[in-house]
Nucleic acid binder design. Structure first.
Lengths: 235, 235
DNA sequence: GAGACCATGTTGCCCGTGGCCACATCGACG
DNA sequence: CGTCGATGTGGCCACGGGCAACATGGTCTC
């Protein structure tokens, strides 16, 4: 009946409610405060109900992480759009993406933690015993392996968005440059979360980071430039 | 490790044994596998014994993290020493530090996770009820606040080591450059752990990273060099 | 329309863990 | 020798995770 969500059966659509509530709790009290039972309590359902939608706690966190990456990616895309196609300096789109990334990370610290954790651990999900009660077709989050794959894909997309924001009309960017740029942005977000910036305004640092990446880009268009230290190049 | 441990009373020196075993388990099975009771079991002591040395699970993880940072910092220092004072290019010490960081991170993935987590969360440690049985003088890891401070200090030291490895005899480096460099290295380690490098050999990327940072360093001694369009950053 | 069927939700259970207690040791120190 | 404090023990309770058997209320098919 109406709406895109499959409008579930007898109760409300729990899955969504669960994720929503979990998101709030996560933001407010951190990942450790997230427990399936507590969510169940808060939503007024039985303690085992969440189990129908998330095989275990891990699955819930993975789902949150996936949502997080989706939101982050959406924001990165929006930022490039807003920054327009290309400008005189060429770095404005990249700069916008960097700011978007840092902004998102700054606003969603606990979420970012969960996202990192989910991407890092393989989520083995013992294949032997695939939950008998919950294994039908589209229930409780297909297997962990799948979730891991989707997470990896979402994560990779962030990298791609960043890398492509660096491309000027002139030509494609060395993918390794994209990696470097992404690493720098991500690392900066991390340090900011660790409160390691020691007074330096984040905006300044982003400018510096963009500048740094951009300079690296300018002088090696020809490729083959190994960076062992002797590049006597510079303005 | 250090012989400074006070060689405890009736049993062995549990604290050290605990940390050692925990380190192994962490490396082998990840942080989730770490439980105080399990450690107690494996070391043949009662389930409450670890509680004498670590107020709670968190305290244990913090201690591991602290050890981790100490080890990492030691390795960073060793790397600069080995790279000699200064070389023609000037980047060799920084490059060595970068490699050391990446090397350590690559070898101790789970530890790095724990280190990050510990540094990120405040470790509130409700001050009201300061465990009555365990609060004497030098027992069970002074309060969490202290642990947090020590962690932050250790972490900061890594940044300082990195930054100072960039200094040539010519003069001190803009601390923000140090931050950028550190962020890039750390971010790269993160991406490597996430297996996001897509075939690009890590060594190449480190070269590129070092090169990128170095180029940024060369041309802005005088300040004022901005590379992005908008953002009229202050002076 | 009746019955199979399946997704969803409920109650109940076991087990491991955390965190606390009161108590037992054992060495140090007066 | 007696006290004390650091250390380790056993016991206890609450909580969360994860299963399993059962209940419910839709959908689908004949």
């Amino acid at each position: 009946m109406s709406g895109s969500a499959p409008t579930p059966y007898h109760h409300g659509n729990l899955r969504t409610a669960l994720l929503e509530r979990a998101g709030e709790t996560l933001a407010a009290e951190g990942a450790d405060a997230l427990t399936l039972r507590r969510l169940a309590r808060e939503l007024g359902v039985s303690h085992a109900a969440p189990g129908r939608h998330f095989r275990d706690r891990r699955a819930l966190l993975d789902a949150l992480a996936l949502e997080g990456y989706a939101a982050l990616n959406a924001r990165l895309e929006a930022s490039t759009d807003a920054a327009g196609p290309v400008d005189p300096h060429g770095a404005s789109r990249f700069s916008a993406v960097a700011r978007a990334y840092l902004g998102f990370a700054g606003e969603h610290g606990p979420l970012m933690e969960v996202m990192s954790r989910s991407v890092l651990s393989p989520s083995v999900s013992s294949p032997s015993v695939s939950s008998p009660s919950v294994s039908g077709s589209g229930t409780a989050e297909a297997d962990g392996a799948d979730a891991a794959a989707r997470l990896a894909a979402a994560r990779r997309r962030g990298l791609e968005l960043t890398a492509s924001s660096m491309r000027e009309d002139s030509g494609p960017v060395d993918p390794r440059r994209g990696l470097i740029a992404f690493a720098l942005i991500h690392g900066l977000a991390q340090l900011a979360a660790e409160d390691l910036l020691e007074g330096h305004p984040l905006d300044d640092l982003v400018d510096l980071a963009v500048d740094t990446v951009w300079r690296g880009l300018e002088t090696d268009a020809g490729r083959g430039t190994k960076a062992d230290g002797d590049s006597g190049v510079d303005a």
